[in-house]
Design a protein around this nucleic acid. Sequence first.
DNA 1: TACTTTTACTGAACACTGTTCATAACTTTG
DNA 2: CAAAGTTATGAACAGTGTTCAGTAAAAGTA
Lengths: 203, 203
Amino acid sequence: MGVKERKERDKAEMRDMILQSAHKLFVDRGFEEVSIRNIAESIEYSPATIYLYFKDKNDIFYALHTEAFKKFNEYMAGLLDIADPFDRLIGMGERYIQFTMEHAEYYEIMFIMDNPMDCDENSEKWEEGNKALAAVEGLIMACQQVGRFKGQDPRVLAFSIWSYMHGMCSLSLRKRLRCYSVEDGKRIPRESFESFKLMLANL
Amino acid sequence: MGVKERKERDKAEMRDMILQSAHKLFVDRGFEEVSIRNIAESIEYSPATIYLYFKDKNDIFYALHTEAFKKFNEYMAGLLDIADPFDRLIGMGERYIQFTMEHAEYYEIMFIMDNPMDCDENSEKWEEGNKALAAVEGLIMACQQVGRFKGQDPRVLAFSIWSYMHGMCSLSLRKRLRCYSVEDGKRIPRESFESFKLMLANL
DNA sequence: TACTTTTACTGAACACTGTTCATAACTTTG
DNA sequence: CAAAGTTATGAACAGTGTTCAGTAAAAGTA
C-alpha cells in the first residue's frame, strides 16, 4: 500500500516546485519584486495553495536559505583534495567570493536579509551558519598544527576572516562601491583580497 | 516682501517634520513596519501631502541617509584632537562600532539597505560614502608619513579596514551572530577587534 | 475692496501586497 | 456506493505606494 508514500512524495515535489519557482523569480527580478501571487502564477496554482505547503512568506525564505547553504557547501566541496590546510583556507576565500558573484540571490538570503532569521526554526541557534563557521574554525586549527596562526584563538580568527569576507561581498552587492570609479571598483577589492591573503600568511 | 522667504522656510520645516517623524517610526518599529500612511498619520496630514515634499518613499530614505552621515560625522568629529594619526584611525574604528550600536537604524540606511542607492541623486557617485572613505584614506596617508603602513596602497587599505568593520557590524545587526552563544556573541567580536588593532599596528 | 492666480492640501481611487477561510472537487477508505 | 479525508480555490480583509481631480485658503493684482 504505497499510497501514503506517493502522497508524501507528491507533497515534497510540490514544495520543491514552489521553491524552484520562487528562486527563479528572485534571480530574475530581485526580492522586493516577487510576491506570493507571482510565485502562484508561475506554478499555475492559486495563491492560497502556497499556504498549504509553507506557513508564510518567511517560511519560503527559510527553506531557500537552507537550500542556499547546500549550494554553498557544494562550492566548498571541491577544495577537499587540497592537502595543505592553509591553501584550503585561501581557496575557501576565493570560492566565497565566486559564490557571491554567481549566486547573489542566495548570498542575500544567507547573510543579508532579515526575514529568514525571524523564522521559528531559525530563531534560536542558526544551525547552518554554525556548521559553516565550524568548518573554518577546524581548518584554522589544522593550520595551527602545522605551525601557522600561533597564539591565535581559532574561533576569533574565523570570525575576523568571515567579517572581512562578508564586509567586502555585502558592500559590493549593496552597491556601496559606487563611491569608486568603475575600474577602481574592481581593482581595489581584488588588491585588498591579495593583501589580506598575504597578511594571513604572515600571521 | 519676505513672503517668499517665509514660504521656503515653511517648506523646509515641513520636510524636516516628515523626516523626523519617519526617523522616529523607524527607530520604534523597524523599517518594514513603517508606511507612508503611518508617517502621514503621525504628522497629522494626508498621505498625499507627503508626495508634495518627497518624490517617493526612496526619496525619504535618501534624505535620511544624508542625515545619517551628518550624525556619523558628528561621532567622528570628537577625534580631531588626537594628534597621532594611527591613534585617530583606531579611534575611528571604535566610534564606528559605537555608532552602529547606538544608531542601528541609521547604519542600516547608510550601508545595508538597497533603497537609498536606487534613488536618482545617489545612483551615480554616492558622494557621502566617498567623503567618509576619503577621510580614512587621508588618515592612512598621514600614518604613512610617520612611518606606518609602508608599501601599502592607502585606498586599498582603507577598503580592507572598511570591509572588516562593516562585515562585523552588519553580521551583528542582521542577527548572524546567533550561531554563537550569548557570551561568545559578545566576546568574539570584541577580541576580534582587539587583534585587528594589533594587526594594523604591526603592518 | 473685488477679482484672479497661485499654492497647499486632501478624498477617493488604482493596482498591488500577505494572509485567511468557507466552499467545492477530487481521492481514499469502510 | 456513501463517508471521510485531502487538496485546491475564489473571495474577502486589511494593508501597501502612488496618482490625480477637486477644494479651500492665501497672495498678487486691478
